[in-house]
Design a protein around this nucleic acid. Structure first.
Lengths: 338, 338
DNA sequence: GTGAAAGCGCTAACAC
DNA sequence: GTGTTAGCGCTTTCAC
């Protein structure tokens, strides 16, 4: 492997000049720059990034910690994060926590974090009770999602309450009055579940419709399977309903399947809306209305926050919060005609 | 940040001894080891991985290049690759190529590859015509998938022809005689499409059933949307059929949706089988029969090959090939009763 | 079993 | 505008 010295020798300059060229230092004579570039090309030289990282303290790597990439929401999040990172010349190391507390902790404190410039952390097990543990992390870090709303780090998430309120209002406006809320999780305490349930309640209050607590259904773990199981149990209870707000798209897709097996038509008998706008919602049968959480914005802002932290390492400013704009996406599952 | 010197000072040993402890060098007196460990804990010392990488030439990083993480197949592949990597103490940098030739090239030759120990490359645009370009890459590399079957690098993939043959046979055995093959792509030349089409033909030959070329339908780009569009066009042609082999699950899911919109029942009117065994196939309506490509095996073997290349950098042995075991997964979409 | 010292390839302070 | 040089934190060779 050629080094900067080989390039310098071939171009008949010092290594400093080569380094200047590599780092786009402006005060290099064009002729010199050209000669150096020619040598770089001739040798097919690539800078050793470990050496650069050691010297500069910056590796150009960020870590993205998510619960599980096989969850379409996080795969799509990873996609936009990687695009936003690349735009800043950063590469992304992805790690899966499995939503496990011990794993989340060992990931954010583990040796690998030593070699990244910053961490994008989508927490699912750690909570605000662990704020002191998070505060102990000195690396630049941005929290994603709603598990930790008021943590010691910058934070980016969607407007959960408002999003869920809009989703619920969407069904209320279409004349539905007995809307199931699928996805609460009282054990979880805080997090998306509580916020989305709050939005559900607010929409009812705003519309002057009372919430029947029988319609508020818990789902532990937001997967197709748990959504399907919860809906199966709910149907068995024989409680009448005409709408369904699912707290993520996977729950909605699992539930839709059960509804259809039971002979119910969507949206005629039950209007359905989900949350996340994963790609699959465009192709399900029927296509699924949902809330677009503004994923690209989440990724872009999160990386901007991270870059700010790189650039001002000891700025002791209060952690920032950014709430992205969401959008109600109407598809077949909540189409107006009934 | 504490360094190895700080640890050495606190433990009252030399940095060599600290290094020995860190690297599990066996000949360290237990008492010494313990003292060093105490100092490491006290200082919350973590080795600087850039320095280690510079010195040792190994970063503990591998790159996984896939077309697109939002495609469930690749997200699930990334999942198993990350698990297998972690078992070897490696972290994974994921990069998306968008199935674009220029991007594939710039990724495998780009500066970031300089800092990884090896590359897992799921090519979709480069082909065997580019073998010389691939051979020029000196980094350990393993090719994934069937785009490049006989390249200059170790290679891991599923048994495409046999898998497709089994899928087709599965429908033939259930009495289907007019089976649509959805997913051919003549422009692509080689790759999964051609192999899976070959399997389709072999199954027919083996069963003594002639292939009606009208039933062989091209799909450019293997997504839900293209599967749906291709099926829509095919239906418009009014050609009778009673079975469908889709060359991946997304095509199958898109096509199933169109079939159902058209009032056809699955599997009664059309039995359907896909390819890849993505999670969604367990929850679609109906659940989708498919071919499980042995993803975990792909990941494990690929990483084993990579590790072999790390350990024997200049072993000039011929590139190895590994074909994984597949499995026909029967679900509702091809259930026998009709 | 442990220590001293060299050096991996780069950046940046400083000199000219 | 370009050259010289120190040193980032680690592994490793070679003594002892």
């Amino acid at each position: 492997m050629p080094t900067i010295h080989d390039v310098a020798r071939l171009a008949e300059v010092s290594i400093k000049t080569v380094s200047n060229v590599l780092n786009d230092y402006p005060h290099v004579r064009p002729a010199t720059r050209q000669r150096v570039q020619a040598a770089i090309d001739a040798l097919d030289y690539q800078p050793n990034l470990s050496a650069r990282g050691l010297r500069s303290g910056r590796t150009g790597l960020v870590s993205l910690i998510v619960p599980d990439l096989t969850n379409a929401y996080f795969a799509e999040l990873a996609d936009v994060v990687m695009r936003a990172a690349e735009a800043q010349g950063l590469s992304v190391i992805i790690a899966q926590s499995g939503a496990d507390r011990e794993r989340e902790l060992s990931l954010i404190r583990g040796p690998r974090m030593q070699m990244v410039d910053g961490i994008l952390f989508s927490a699912l097990a750690l909570s605000e009770d662990d704020n002191d543990l998070l505060a102990a992390i000195k690396k630049p870090m941005v929290l994603l999602g709603e598990r930790i709303l008021h943590g010691p780090k910058d934070h980016v998430t969607m407007r959960n309450v408002e999003g869920s309120q809009a989703a619920t209002a969407h069904l209320l406006e279409r004349g539905r009055r007995r809307i199931v809320a699928l996805g609460g999780d009282s054990a979880q305490g805080v997090g998306s579940a509580a916020l989305r349930l709050e939005g559900y309640r607010r929409a009812h209050a705003a519309a002057g419709v009372e919430v029947d607590e029988d319609l508020v259904v818990e789902v532990v773990g937001w997967f197709r399977s748990t959504g399907a199981a919860a809906m199966r149990e709910f149907l068995a209870r024989g409680i009448p309903f005409d709408g369904l707000v699912a707290f993520n798209d996977l729950i909605a897709l699992g539930a839709m399947r059960v509804l259809q097996e039971a002979g119910l038509q969507i949206p005629r008998d039950v209007a359905v809306i989900g949350f996340d706008d994963i790609d699959e919602t465009r192709y399900s049968l029927p296509t699924l209305s949902t809330i677009d959480p503004g994923r690209s914005e989440i990724a872009e802002v999160a990386l901007r926050f991270l870059a700010d932290q790189f650039d001002h390492p000891d700025a002791a400013r209060a952690p920032r919060d950014h709430l992205t704009a969401f959008r109600v996406v109407e598809r077949e599952s909540s189409a107006s005609a009934r």
